[in-house]
């Protein structure tokens, strides 16, 4: 079943075309990556999908409903965790509920039940400055999830983390995603990360940015511990490099 569909989206800035005829879809429970070089229009596409930007042409559908240019339906998460430093972790995470009009007490109750699943128990009353980068990203992800329970839009979420933390997040994320039945659209410029996590990968390249190929990663989930050391993994990598 298709969760999110982007249909023939084009977008220009000041006469310069950034995106050309972008079409992609995300099925329920899938993790799909959008892989491309930095500055290739990925973030523009994200802003179009989240409704913050209106495309010049094309449309965005969520569960079959046209949500083009309408913010408030899909939330996203960036490389910057954007935890508000003046709110405790629980109040940061509860923010989307407060914005939907849920009472503060009720919102706190709802979020606190999710803390253990995200490995955040005990951090409720702490402030973001007291948490490590990896923990802050988890909290940011939980906040994204509190806003839209079925779809996460992640823009290079792990690229600011150190290698070890990043690798821990790579192991952790697919598990939690399955547990809470989340579909994920993932933007990244990291080829290894895309192969490691994705069911499918769309390749975005060129000026203006176009979809230049779609790679299906057939390796079953959960992935083997040493998947990134196998010949199959390298084969995928070679194929992607030749297309980019």
């Amino acid at each position: 079943m298709v969760k999110l569909e982007v249909r023939k989206v084009s977008k220009s800035f000041e006469g310069k075309k950034v995106l050309q005829d972008i079409s992609l879809e995300l099925r329920r429970g899938e993790l799909v990556s959008l892989l491309g070089v930095s500055g290739g229009g990925k973030t523009t596409l994200f802003n179009v999908i989240s409704g913050l930007l209106k495309p010049d042409e094309g449309a965005v559908f969520l569960d079959g409903e046209d949500i083009t240019g309408r913010p408030g339906r899909i939330s996203y998460m960036l490389q910057k965790d954007l935890m508000l430093p003046y709110r405790t972790i629980e109040d940061n995470v509860a923010l989307p509920l407060l914005l939907k009009g849920v009472k503060k007490k009720e919102a706190r109750l709802q979020v606190s039940s999710m803390f253990p699943q995200f490995g955040l128990d005990g951090t409720e009353k702490q402030y973001p400055a007291q948490l490590s980068g990896g923990m802050r990203q988890r909290a940011a992800l939980l906040r994204t999830y509190m806003f839209s329970r079925e779809l996460a839009l992640l823009d290079e979420p792990f690229s600011a983390l150190d290698t070890l933390t990043k690798s821990a997040m790579h192991k952790w994320y697919p598990g939690v995603m399955e547990k809470i039945q989340l579909s994920t659209l993932f933007i990244t410029h990291d080829i290894d990360e895309a192969i490691l996590l994705s069911d499918r990968i769309y390749l975005l390249s060129g000026v203006p940015g176009r979809i230049n190929g779609e790679i299906i990663i057939k390796e079953p989930k959960p992935r083997r511990e040493d998947f990134n050391l196998t010949p199959e993994f390298l084969e995928y990598k070679r194929e992607i490099l030749s297309l980019l």
Partner: peptide
């Protein structure tokens, strides 16, 4: 933070709420 404002907007916040949750604090 412009990105934080963008995030709240994507969550459907109006100007008053952006003021309350971002600008004022």
């Amino acid at each position: 933070d412009r990105d934080a404002i963008g995030l709240l907007r994507s969550m459907g916040a109006d100007r008053l709420r952006i003021f309350r949750y971002i600008k004022f604090p």
